[in-house]
Design a binder for these strands. Structure first.
Lengths: 196, 196
DNA sequence: TATGCTTGTAAGTTATCGCTTACATGCATT
DNA sequence: AATGCATGTAAGCGATAACTTACAAGCATA
């Protein structure tokens, strides 16, 4: 079986599920979108559930965040936070479909798929914790704060904001109004963590 | 048509949809759970979609937060923030099913249902903004901060945290570990907003 | 007793679902 | 030329979905 066929199916499934949900997407429609006979889908994957699990694995949005970190360490704390915030939000936006699948569809999905989500988050929290650990070692942030807690707070704030905006779905992207809101978040967060 | 039948159907639909999603819940199963013939469901509601819309309206988790506010105003800022945080999280926890429906299912739902969510959030943000506006007028928080932005930051942080924890679904409730995490959030948030 | 309202039973509609089977086609390797 | 592999076409399986129709039973009020 050629690889491209399989990947076309995966891509179609990803797109459809992210817009209509797992239960809302039929194998017929997925096959149609992939320009493939429905039976071909079942020759590549043992079933709809297996296809979904494979989608979760294949499209795992690996955070490009970790590549950004070394660069951030040479910036002043507030500036680094600002860059991190914008990049983080852009990253979420770029992978909005993937994230919507994970943060919504997984709730009804079997345990196996939750693990994919759990591992993804663990890596993400790890990267963020690294950043704040480094900042603490450099004396940028107060030593009494747990870097992991800060990382979670940072993540929660940005993710929570994105999720609400995404669900209401009035507009997409980093609009000026959102940019302004994120600026306030950064200011607040910076004051809340930095040394004086 | 008696009121109790209708309400039993609404309650059953609410429970089922919150655990299996809109698409995952059938009218048969909803009727069964309500101990009602399926046809009765269709005599009370014009269809599944109409039933769902009615569920959204009926179970609108009205924040008891607004009742809490007057009491908070007499507390020191950090203490008020702490109480607000705990109460807010408990409120989210108590309405977890309702919130899961809104924050997940609505993304795939028609525009009409998004409005229900939008109006709910608008009220919620309003209540929080009131709190921070009052705190600013009392000189508790820095005057250069926009109360609405602070309110959104506060909401995003708590909601984002809850959502992640809820989706991964390892445990429920305000566990000691979460309590500790929220304490850090409060400390961070307080330092980020208060005057010195 | 009669009327009207709500509910239940039963059977059925049409549509779609996930998935399978049987067979033909085309292309590449041997 | 023959073999094997990936794909397509077509038809259909059994299950379930949302929803409808027709009719009977219960219960209240008039």
């Amino acid at each position: 079986m050629s690889n491209s066929t399989r990947e076309r199916i995966l891509k179609a499934a990803f797109e459809l599920i992210s817009s209509k949900g797992y239960q809302g997407s039929s194998t017929r429609e997925i096959a149609q979108r992939a320009q493939v006979a429905e039976v071909t889908l079942f020759r590549h994957f043992t079933g709809k559930a297996a296809l979904f699990a494979e989608v979760l694995r294949s499209f795992s949005a690996i955070p490009t965040l970790s590549e950004l970190l070394p660069h951030l360490k040479h910036l002043p704390y507030e500036e680094a936070l600002e860059t991190l915030t914008i990049r983080f939000f852009e990253g979420i936006e770029a992978n909005r479909d993937w994230i919507r699948i994970l943060s919504c569809e997984v709730g009804y999905a079997p345990e196996e798929m939750k693990q994919v989500y759990g591992e993804f988050l663990k890596r993400l929290f790890g990267v963020l914790t690294d950043f704040f650990t480094d900042a603490r070692e450099r004396g940028r942030i107060r030593p009494d704060l747990d870097p992991e807690h800060i990382a979670r707070a940072f993540h929660s704030m940005l993710f929570g904001f994105f999720h609400i905006e995404d669900m209401l779905g009035v507009s997409q992207g980093l609009t000026p109004l959102r940019r302004e809101m994120l600026d306030s978040f950064v200011k607040l967060f910076c004051r809340g963590t930095r040394t004086f």
